Amino acid sequence: MALDKDELAEKIDELMTANGFKPSAEKTRGSELWACLAEALVIHIQEKAEVSVTSGSSAGTYKVT
């Protein structure tokens, strides 16, 4: 699965709105905030994520890219 910071930012905005917040209100700069948060999450996951293959000739732990 490819991680997409723009899709993640949209989903954060959508869920905040659905829960009664106004993340995109003019004074909140919400879109910029969610975009920064989403980008940080994507970068963190890409830098730290690993997958374990427990059997077969490819057994081992690999970095997720």
Rank of each mutant, 00 (worst) to 15 (best):
K11P: 04
S31L: 03
I45F: 11
E50T: 13
L41P: 02
T54C: 04
E7N: 09
L33C: 06
I12E: 00
A18Y: 05
L33W: 10
Y62S: 03
K22L: 05
I45M: 15
E32K: 06
C36M: 15
K48V: 12
E32C: 03
M16N: 04
E50C: 09
E10D: 15
G30T: 09
M16K: 08
I43K: 14
E10M: 10
R29F: 15
M16W: 09
E14M: 02
G20D: 10
F21S: 06
L41C: 13
A18T: 09
G20T: 09
S31V: 02
S57W: 04
A35R: 13
C36L: 14
W34K: 00
V64N: 06
E7C: 07
N19P: 00
K63A: 11
R29P: 01
K48W: 04
N19H: 13
P23I: 14
T61E: 04
K63S: 11
R29A: 15
L37P: 00
E50W: 07
K27I: 04
G30Y: 05
Q46A: 05
V64D: 08
L41R: 12
E26F: 05
A18K: 11
T54R: 02
D13S: 12
V51K: 14
D6C: 05
W34I: 01
T28Q: 09
V53I: 14
Q46K: 12
L8E: 08
V64G: 01
L8Y: 10
S55C: 13
F21H: 10
R29W: 08
L37T: 13
E7T: 08
D13N: 01
L37G: 04
L3N: 10
E7I: 04
E47R: 11
A9P: 05
G20F: 06
A49W: 12
L15A: 08
K48M: 08
I12H: 06
L15D: 02
N19W: 09
L15Q: 11
S57Q: 07
T65Q: 04
V53D: 07
A2H: 06
T28N: 10
A49L: 15
T28M: 12
H44E: 02
A25Q: 12
C36I: 12
L3Y: 13
I12G: 04
E50V: 14
I12T: 03
I12W: 04
S31Q: 08
L37Y: 03
I12D: 00
D4Y: 15
Y62K: 02
A25P: 10
G30W: 01
L15V: 13
E39R: 11
P23T: 11
K27Q: 03
T54P: 00
T17K: 01
F21Y: 12
V42T: 02
A18F: 06
L3V: 06
L37M: 14
S24H: 10
R29M: 10
T61D: 00
A49P: 14
E47Q: 07
I45V: 14
D6E: 14
S24I: 03
T17F: 06
E47K: 11
G60I: 12
G56R: 11
G30K: 02
K5V: 00
Y62T: 03
S58L: 15
A2S: 07
D13L: 02
L33A: 09
G20M: 12
A35I: 09
A2F: 04
A59N: 02
